[in-house]
Structures are given as structure tokens and as C-alpha cells.
Design a binder for these strands. Structure first.
Length: 749
RNA sequence: GACCGCUUAGCUCAGUUGGCUAGAGCAUUUCAUUGACAUUGAAAAGGUCAGUGGUUCAAGUCCACUAGCGGUCACCA
């Protein structure tokens, strides 16, 4: 053995494990299985420091494997819908192109190529970190089998009346060109103004003067003496000249501004609700590209973006002499979490999931701890969020993802708006009824379609074609599939049962029957609502069972100073370069030791170096044992029933304590405590005290050395698998230990 | 606006259900060591556990309030 441990051989150990079949469990119905589905990292990106925290899962998995439980840790990667498309569009931009230059199919193929080219990056890095994943069961979120299950569940939800289309206010990013759910909107404080506009009989105060063009009412509080008598009358909308009613609405606060609110149903969620309640008109002034809509605004405003339109409208209000004052005002404005631009609330036809009944069942299973959320403080967050949850918009106007499996018969839906690239490469947009003679071109160059909410649709192309009373002869093709894709979380929310082989026809796989519900789901708390909540809702709805018994929220990795890592700050730590320099074990231990459950981890060079030293300590203690062994060639290895030496007795007692505490701490997800205790035990009690004490003794130490060292290696193995396995392979025959591999050895009791 | 978390040694953090002189790593000081390991060992110094009040035989730990920091959620013009 060399003087110091060199991590360069770690990949040999990894293939030793992999080829031994240790990662692949055998289904044994007499035993309780242990299973974890890996949260799939993005398929096309290198891992970041946060991903290295999958080590927490590896600890549980290796521990349960050693306990003898049939243990499955199922790996996979995520196509990561908008994330990936956003990255790919940046590449396009660098080439002077954009998504508008491609038809839908071509763009999809380009992104798919890009992803396929990079798909093994994350996989290889996970292997390098020593994760004992069962690669024979690897999945991808765009696997055909998964797609089919996602589609079948969507159909089921439609049949059960849980899916509907509606033209509601949604969070729309005009730059990314898609709607988002509330969770994907970040609220930022914006310093702006409150504009006071004179409407004649009353004055309104607004933060968005430009939306005046789309106003269809003015609302006042019905108990406000200033305006009471105006309710029911109409006034003339400035600049536009339209007559709009004054309505009474309880939610209007008389104290704010002037106590009168302009109502823009198509561009404000509150106003939308008011309009539904009072039966107001809807006037959408912006198109989905963010520009003022030519159908409704005055010629001079056509094509302006919101901020340009604001400038223009304010100027016109000023020159009309009806802008009474402008005061500074700061308020919260929603921004796109991807591109950072402000979100435009806008009415758009979208697909929604009725969430109430699903959420209620999720609340029930979490309240009753059928799904135990750990650390428990997240349980309250979960329940609070679930209580006020709103219907889930599941459609996204991007191409990279699961294309919604419905087909429109064009004859039945003349008002479908299609955008396509024609044979001259021009972007054309128009209603189907005006494009009937251009079917081939539309079908070939299709980019997006926008079906009105009352559009008829079918769940297969054949069905859609059949219902085509108007088409004769060449039926093929007068049908278009929805161009929207599912929210990524709609697909990944189904990950646990889908990866295990749940089948829509009830013919589930053996894996599903045996390993589902899974034992633990471990992920970072930042996707508790995005992902964990969706998995619980979907899992209970589809399979009638919880998808996992425990939802374990792991920590967030910060830099050495406790700052959030970000590329712009330049303080990111690349896990693989640490692995190169110090070995995977040092990184793994540094990420776990002394970290309280759910708290942040400050990952510093110092900490990693300290753990590398610990790994080396294990190496050298083993070297010492080896050298001692050579001194006593005739030694026996069996531990006597009674130890006569007090040092021997002491270390064995301490070992027994550490076996108990490590076992219980891992069971309680206290990995930080377990690692800390092991560190103290091994370095201080075993090396500094016991090994020193053996230096002038006889061969009676041998069985104690063997027992304590091998047991320690086992206890440490889930945390630092490489060095422990390497050492074990060096020592096992010399110490007459009959277990082949540490990874499949028996957990100490 | 609602909710949550944090505040312990110079730095980064542990401290399980309240219970013996409050711990670790790194940094600092002193000493030792060419025989497992300088990626070492022995020892020292360093904290009125954010503040105030309360419960208790006993509080870093439980309760209330205050201050500072961080986070999550949220359709208010």
C-alpha cells in the first residue's frame, strides 16, 4: 500500500461494483424492499454542486442494501422542457437565428439532437461520484413508454372531467412565448408611478395607464358616498371614445388612490374576475408577441410594446389635459423566472387541470403522515400551499416536451389560428378558414396553432379524421395536432409510477408491483410545490396509492461564505473538479458531515481538504493494521468471548455504541450527525487512542483490530464508499474476512 | 401582506426528547515526531449560546416579545 490514498483508481472500484450486479436488486417477495427514484437531473447539463447531494440517497441506498433489503435506486434524466429550450434558443441567437426561423418539427429535432449529444454528461458524472444506481433500469422523460403513460393519464383526466380548456388570465411571457403557472413567476418590487386620470365624473388611479385602451368598466365601492349615485351610469373612455359602465364592486377599497378603479378584464387577474362577475366585455389589446393588437387599438398604437405604449398613452393623456397627477409608487410586479422580463397577464386559451379534488386527497395523505415530510417544518408549507391552490395551467407554448395528444379536425374548427412558414420561408399567420387551399404548406411549415376554447378535438388522429363530414377524398392531413406541450411537471409528476412500469391497462410490471410505493423521495425543498406536490397528487389519483412514504428535503449547497452559488458571482463549485483533485469520498463527506437536516451547507475548500485528510487517515490506519499483521503471522482472528485487556474492551464498547447510534441516525435521516460521530470515533477513539495503545502489545490485538477495522469500514461505507471498498479489497484475505465486497456485506449489529 | 427559518469560539457550523466543566473542522499559540499517516500527534487559548422577560429543581434547548439577517408564498388598482 502507498503512503497516501490516491483517488485515481475510484473508477475501477465503481466498475467492480457495477459488474458484480450489486446495483441491481432481486425481487424477493419474502422481504420488504427499499426503493428510491432518483430526481432526474437535466439531460444535457453537467451536474452542479447541488446534484452532488444525491449522496444522501446513496447513503440510504447503500445502508439498506447492506441490511439485506432488496434495494433499488432507479436513475433517469429529464428533458427539462422550457429549461432546455431556453438554453437552446441562446445557442440559436449566437448563430443569429431564433425559434421563429424553424417549423415546429424541425426545431424539435434540432433540440433533440442537441440533447442526445450531451445526454451522457450527467450520467458519467453520477457514476464518478460513486452513486450506486441501477443503470439497467435507466429512464429518460421522453422515453416512448413514459410518453404513452403520460398521454394515457391525460386522457383519463379528460374522461374524468378533470381537464378543461378556458380562456382565462394567465401569466404570459411574450419573450419566451409561453404561458406559465404562478410558481414560475417571481415577484419583484418595481419603482413606478401611480397615474391619476380624469374620466369626467370621476378620477381613477392606475399603475398601468396603457391598458386603458382595453378598459371595459370603472369600478367603485358600492358604499362609497362619493360615487354611489354613479353606479349604473356610463362614461366615455378617454382617447378611445367607447362607452363603458361604472360598476359597484365590494373589493374596491375607497382608501386607495381615488377609490375608483379602471377595469381591464383581459390584462389583470382581479379585473378578469370582476368582468366574469358583472358580465363585462373583454378587450385584449396585446397580442401574444407582446405588441399592441391591430384589431382593437388606434392605428398610431399598433405594434407598440407595453412600455412604449405606456409612454405614448401617457403623452396623449397629458396633451388631452386629463392626466391630473403622477405620483411615485412602488409595487410588486410578476417577472418571468427564465428570462427575467415582466410577465404580461393576458387572456389566452389554455389547458387546465381542475386541482381541488386532487389537492384534497394530497392534503389528507400528508396530514395523516401517509407521506411523511421531513424535516417536518415543510409539512406546514405544503399544507398551506395546497389549501389555496388554484387550477393548474398545464399547456406551454414551447416545442420541447410532450406534445398534447389531441387532434383538431380543421373542417370543424375554421377559427383555428395557425402560424407557419410558407414555401418561401415567410412567417404567415392566419385563420384556417382563410387558408383552406394551403393545407400542405400549413401542415409542413406549422409552427403553432391557437384553437378557440370551444374547438372540437379528438384523442387520436384517426378519430379526428373520421369526424370530418365536410372533407371528401383526400382526408389525410386535414387534421392538426395541438402544438402546445405539457408543463414539464405534468410529466415529471408521474415519474415514480411511470419509471417503475405502471401501465394504463392495469397490466403493471413486476417492478411496479414490488417497489411501488417507493420508500423515500429525496430532493431539495425548492421544488416541494413544483414537483413533490404534483407527484403526490398524480400518484394518488392515478395509482390510488401514495408514490413514496417519505419526502425527504435535503439541504442547499452554498459557497464557503454561505453565499448562494451563481455563475455571475463566480463562486460556483464544480463537483467534478473537486472529485478530480481530492476524490469523490472527500466531497461526499464534506457535503454531509455536521449538516443539520434541511439546513444550508457551506461548502468550502477547507472543509473538503479536512475530509480528504480523513479519507487518508482511514487508508493509513489500514496500512498500520496490515503492518501489524505481518508482525504476527500466527495470530488468530476470532474475537474471544471475554476481553481481558481494558483498551480492547473500551474500543469494542465504543464500537458497539457507534453501531447503534449510526444505525439509528441513518434511520432518522440524521446523516450529518452520523457522519460526525463516525469521524470522531474513527480518528480519535480508534486511531489516536486505541492504535497508539497497541504499539507495545502482543498478538492478542489482532482479532480486535480486525473486528473494529472491518466494522468501521462497513459503517463508513455508505458515506465514503471508495476508500472503504479499496481498503477492504486490500485487507479482506489477509484478515480472513469471507465477504467478497463491502458494498454487499452485512450491516453490523 | 401571510408564513417559515436563522442569530452558539476569529471563520463555517453541530448540539436528538430541557440534565454533569457548551462541541467539531479550519485558523491561532506552544511542544513533539526520521517507524501507519506532516494529509501526523499532544496540549493551550478562544463563547455572559442576539437581547429582554417568563416556565422549571434545572434553559443554548420550552414560551412571549424585541432587533438584525435570510427564505417561501401571494391576482390588489
Amino acid at each position: 500500500m502507498d503512503k497516501t490514498y490516491t483517488p485515481q483508481n475510484e473508477d475501477k472500484i465503481y466498475s467492480l461494483w457495477e459488474t458484480s450486479g450489486a446495483f441491481t436488486p432481486k425481487i424477493d417477495k419474502t422481504k420488504e424492499p427499499f426503493s428510491i427514484i432518483l430526481p432526474p437531473p437535466n439531460a444535457n447539463e453537467p451536474l452542479h454542486a447541488g446534484h452532488a447531494l444525491y449522496v444522501v440517497e446513496d447513503i440510504m441506498v447503500r445502508y439498506h442494501r447492506m441490511l439485506g433489503d432488496p434495494t433499488l435506486w432507479l436513475p433517469g434524466t429529464d428533458h427539462a422542457g422550457i429549461e432546455t429550450q431556453f438554453v437552446y434558443e441562446k445557442h440559436l441567437k449566437a448563430e443569429g437565428k431564433s425559434r421563429f426561423d424553424f417549423d415546429r418539427d424541425t426545431l424539435y429535432k434540432l433540440i433533440a439532437e442537441y440533447v442526445n449529444k450531451n445526454r451522457d454528461i450527467a450520467v458519467n458524472q453520477m457514476k464518478r461520484l460513486g452513486f450506486s444506481l441501477d443503470w439497467t433500469r435507466e429512464r429518460f422523460t421522453l422515453d416512448e413508454a413514459h410518453n404513452q403513460r403520460v398521454f394515457a393519464v391525460f386522457k383519463k383526466m379528460c374522461d374524468d372531467g378533470l381537464v378543461y380548456r378556458d380562456e382565462k388570465i394567465v401569466n404570459y411571457c411574450t419573450f419566451c412565448g409561453t404561458a406559465f403557472s404562478n410558481l414560475e413567476v417571481v415577484h419583484k418590487t418595481v419603482n413606478s408611478h401611480l397615474w391619476y386620470i380624469n374620466y369626467g365624473p370621476l378620477e381613477v388611479a392606475t399603475t398601468r395607464p396603457e391598458t386603458l385602451l382595453g378598459d371595459t368598466a370603472v369600478a367603485v365601492n358600492p358604499s362609497d358616498p362619493r360615487y354611489q349615485k354613479l353606479i349604473g351610469t356610463t362614461i366615455t373612455l378617454p382617447l378611445i371614445g367607447r362607452q363603458i359602465p361604472i360598476i359597484g364592486e365590494e373589493s374596491v377599497s375607497p382608501e386607495f388612490g381615488t377609490g375608483a378603479v379602471k377595469v381591464t378584464p383581459s390584462h389583470s387577474p382581479e379585473d378578469y374576475d370582476m368582468a366574469k362577475k358583472h358580465g363585462l366585455e373583454f378587450v385584449r389589446i396585446f397580442d401574444y408577441d407582446g405588441k399592441a393588437n391591430s384589431n382593437v387599438v388606434d392605428e398610431k398604437y399598433i405594434g407598440l410594446f407595453p412600455n412604449q405604449l405606456r409612454e405614448s398613452v401617457v403623452k396623449d393623456l397629458e396633451s388631452a389635459g386629463i392626466l391630473s397627477k403622477t405620483v411615485d409608487y412602488s409595487h410588486e410586479v410578476g417577472h418571468c423566472y427564465k428570462c427575467g422580463r415582466s410577465i404580461e397577464p393576458i387572456t389566452a386559451p389554455q389547458w387546465f387541470v381542475k386541482i381541488r379534488s386532487l389537492a384534497d386527497k394530497a392534503i389528507e395523505v400528508v396530514k395523516k403522515d401517509k407521506v411523511k415530510i421531513f424535516p417536518s417544518r415543510f409539512k406546514k408549507d405544503f399544507l398551506t400551499w395546497m389549501k389555496d391552490i388554484r387550477d393548474w395551467p398545464i399547456s406551454r407554448q414551447i416545442v420541447w416536451g410532450h406534445r398534447i395528444p389531441v387532434w383538431y379536425n380543421l373542417d370543424e374548427n375554421p377559427d383555428i389560428l395557425v402560424s407557419y412558414i410558407d414555401k418561401n420561408g415567410q412567417n404567415i399567420s392566419g385563420y384556417w378558414k382563410n387558408l383552406k387551399d394551403k393545407y400542405q404548406e400549413v401542415a409542413l411549415g406549422l409552427q403553432t396553432l391557437l384553437a378557440p376554447i370551444n374547438a372540437k378535438y379528438y384523442f387520436s388522429k384517426e378519430e379526428a379524421l373520421k369526424k370530418s363530414p365536410l372533407s371528401k377524398g383526400d382526408l389525410e392531413g386535414l387534421v392538426l395536432q395541438e402544438t402546445d406541450t405539457f408543463d414539464t411537471w405534468f410529466s415529471s409528476g408521474q415519474w415514480p409510477y411511470s419509471t417503475l412500469g405502471w401501465e394504463p391497462d392495469g397490466n403493471h410490471s413486476e417492478d411496479f408491483k414490488y417497489f411501488y410505493p417507493t420508500s423515500v423521495l429525496d430532493t431539495m425543498w425548492d421544488i416541494l410545490f413544483f414537483w413533490v406536490a404534483r407527484m403526490i397528487m398524480m400518484g394518488v389519483y392515478v395509482t390510488g396509492e401514495i408514490p413514496f412514504k417519505v419526502a425527504h428535503m435535503h439541504s442547499r449547497v452554498l459557497d464557503g461564505k454561505g453565499q448562494k452559488m451563481s455563475k455571475s458571482k463566480g463562486n460556483t463549485i464544480n463537483p467534478l473538479s473537486i472529485v478530480e483533485a481530492h476524490g469523490a469520498d472527500a466531497l461526499r463527506m464534506a457535503l454531509v458531515i455536521g449538516v443539520a437536516p434541511g439546513s444550508d451547507i457551506a461548502l468550502s475548500e477547507d472543509k473538503i481538504r479536512a475530509q480528504r485528510n480523513f479519507v487518508n487517515k482511514i487508508w493509513n490506519a489500514s496500512r498500520f493494521v496490515l503492518m501489524t499483521l505481518e508482525k504476527y503471522p500466527d495470530a488468530v482472528f476470532d474475537l474471544p468471548k471475554n476481553l481481558t485487556n481494558s483498551s480492547d474492551q473500551e474500543i469494542v464498547d465504543k464500537l458497539n455504541k457507534i453501531i447503534t447510534s449510526t444505525t439509528s441516525n441513518i434511520d432518522k435521516y440524521k446523516f450529518g450527525q452520523a457522519a460526525d460521530d463516525l469521524y470522531q470515533f474513527f480518528w480519535h477513539d480508534f486511531c489516536d487512542v486505541y492504535l497508539e495503545s497497541t504499539k507495545n502489545r502482543d498478538e492478542k490485538i489482532i482479532p480486535v483490530l480486525k473486528h473494529v477495522l472491518i466494522t468501521s469500514l462497513k459503517l463508513l461505507h455508505p458515506f465514503i464508499p471508495y476508500v472503504t471498498e479499496t481498503v477492504y479489497q486490500e485487507l479482506k484475505s489477509k484478515l480472513k474476512s469471507n465477504e467478497e465486497l463491502l458494498i454487499t456485506s452485512t450491516w453490523p449489529r
